[in-house]
Write a protein that binds this DNA or RNA. Structure first.
Lengths: 332, 332
DNA sequence: TTGTAGGCGTTATCAC
DNA sequence: GTGATAACGCCTACAA
């Protein structure tokens, strides 16, 4: 069923049918009603792709996300559904593309959504502002609004929503110090693109105390309970004096908690423990895990809002930064 | 940049450019190379939507999923990324639509993907085979292959991948009985469409023991730790003799575990506890939770495979059923 | 080997 | 108020 079929049945031209479909003026009451009836009777369904071709707007948003299956990434996709809901409310739909984390895969994903003529793109997840990605955007999406979550590229059509992990970690350190801790450790999961940023926040936080607080960093911790356990064991051997641990992922922190409890170390009595993500996992372990909230949902919604501002011609913010918060629970 | 632009630059016709793009024979070596060079030089990007219009195939799959934000549904979307990856491998992309759970919302989502002229649809999540959905498919997607996960409709273009929850619960009961339990309880989360099916499995399992085993069912349990705690408290008041509990969601089971432990009841010493989902949560609590594995990833992949079979003209299975398994851990 | 013409389903422009 | 007609970008007979 096309508008031509309907037009023929109604004995009018396709233009009139189109006008009716789009609720435009310029068609007589009777004709309109006749067309409306036919439309309903024959279950006419508008071809959005054809409309997009003609209107040069697909009403779809490319959502790129980088999830490693099996790596406890469920938390990171929580925001996805809020985004989808918000976009749907405004008549946009999501073309979802899961990219790997390599530049090459990201570039391919960008070219894919570009070929599908999306109206906008959201780069969600652990992307980073690499030069390769930058060139891909310049090449494939020179005019298309792009919002990056947790990253930024200085291009006219690129917008950024950041989460200040440096400040967040600094805050985490301060928090532990206020709890009387002074020998801190930081566990960072492997393959984490923001490792450097997190580390810097941790070190900044420690530096402020000019020697009164020490900090040791373990990178490349496997993102699992076992990763947490193993690294905790290592830590206890190398730095048994440690009295405060921050883990860049809740799941690792819970592994650490497990191990410490098995070793008879009281948490938070002897050692304070803090995770990052504020995921559901933090509610389940015992004691419940204090965790740095990375504002998943908020940042994703902010990204959507920014994109909609651009698409609907409102003045958008090119860059916004969200601050992390501490969800205090029982491990500190 | 369209094929016409490229054609003009190369001094040839658009058809030749099209042939080159599609790797089709019938264009001279020199012309081909000239066109290839131009294509590259001007960063030509094929308009997939236009191609779709003419080829009547959008190379996109509509993925409908029903997630309630904030309701611990992360586990149910885990399979989504496996699906996306598998589809992408075969050149298809995902139009993601999160529907609510009401028929009306589902129908709207179906009409949306129909309007986008998707090549196939996957109904993932807790959908059910209602008559309203059936009519929507007949009306909007009469020719389009549809794969339902955890449900089935007897229409020529609808395929089903089921998970046998009845058998699963029966197996769960057997398992507990073999562990010496005989006074069982089942907690079902509210808004669960498969409540009846689960209940039936539970009751079937119990009936087999002809009076030697009893079972009580609590429905409408809130899908949260608190929901589990509250219902456990209720259960202990109403049926203190209970020695085995199955919860239709891991999160609820963990709430129950919490409460029992607080009451000084030993798990699994006095009471055996079993969840359903086999989610990450089951690994975190202590003791670790025995859980009925609903085969999330497997069923989603099976759905993709079925859909690809149809799309690529291989003989598909109209219905397949997967069986649940018990992931045994510390609570039984 | 190459080009022309028509079609995919819609919208927009301009006559009448 | 209504209807041709030409886009939109691509594909595919069919013709040359």
């Amino acid at each position: 069923m096309t508008i031509y079929d309907i037009a023929k049945l109604a004995g009018v031209s396709a233009s009139s049918v189109s006008r009716v479909i789009n609720n435009k003026p310029g068609v007589g009451k009777e004709t309109r009603e006749k067309i409306l009836a036919l439309l309903d009777q024959y279950h006419y369904s508008l071809d959005e792709t054809a409309r997009g071709l003609s209107k040069k707007s697909s009403k779809t948003i490319g959502v790129l996300i980088s999830v490693m299956p099996g790596l406890h990434s469920e938390h990171s996709i929580k925001g996805l559904f809020y985004m989808e809901g918000e976009l749907a409310k405004h008549g946009y739909h999501c073309l979802l593309v899961n990219t790997g984390t390599t530049d090459g895969e990201v570039v391919e994903a960008i070219s894919t959504v570009a070929g599908r003529r999306v109206d906008g793109v959201i780069l969600a997840g652990a992307f980073y502002a690499t030069n390769v990605v930058r060139r891909a955007i310049e090449q494939y999406l020179p005019q298309c609004p792009v919002v990056m979550i947790n990253g930024f590229l200085d291009l006219p059509n690129v917008y950024g929503v950041g989460i200040d992990e440096t400040q967040g970690l600094e805050m985490g350190v301060d928090f532990l110090v206020r709890k009387g801790r002074s020998k801190l450790a930081l566990f960072i999961d492997s393959r984490r693109l923001s490792a450097g940023i997190i580390r810097r926040g941790f070190e900044n936080g420690i530096a402020k105390y000019r020697g009164a607080v020490t900090g040791i960093v373990y990178e490349d911790v496997e993102r699992s309970l076992q990763g947490g356990r193993d690294t905790a064991a290592l830590l206890l051997r190398e730095h048994p004096e440690t009295d405060g641990i921050i883990c860049a992922v809740d799941m690792i922190a819970i592994g650490v908690l497990d191990y410490l409890q098995e070793m008879g170390i009281d948490v938070p009595g002897q050692v304070s423990l803090m995770g990052e993500d504020n995921s559901n996992y933090a509610e389940i372990c015992k004691p419940k895990l204090t965790s740095l909230d990375t504002k998943m949902v908020e940042s994703n919604l902010m990204a959507v809002r920014t994109l909609l501002d651009v698409l609907e011609q409102r003045p958008p913010c090119h860059r916004v930064m969200l601050y992390m918060e501490i969800a205090e629970r029982g491990t500190t």
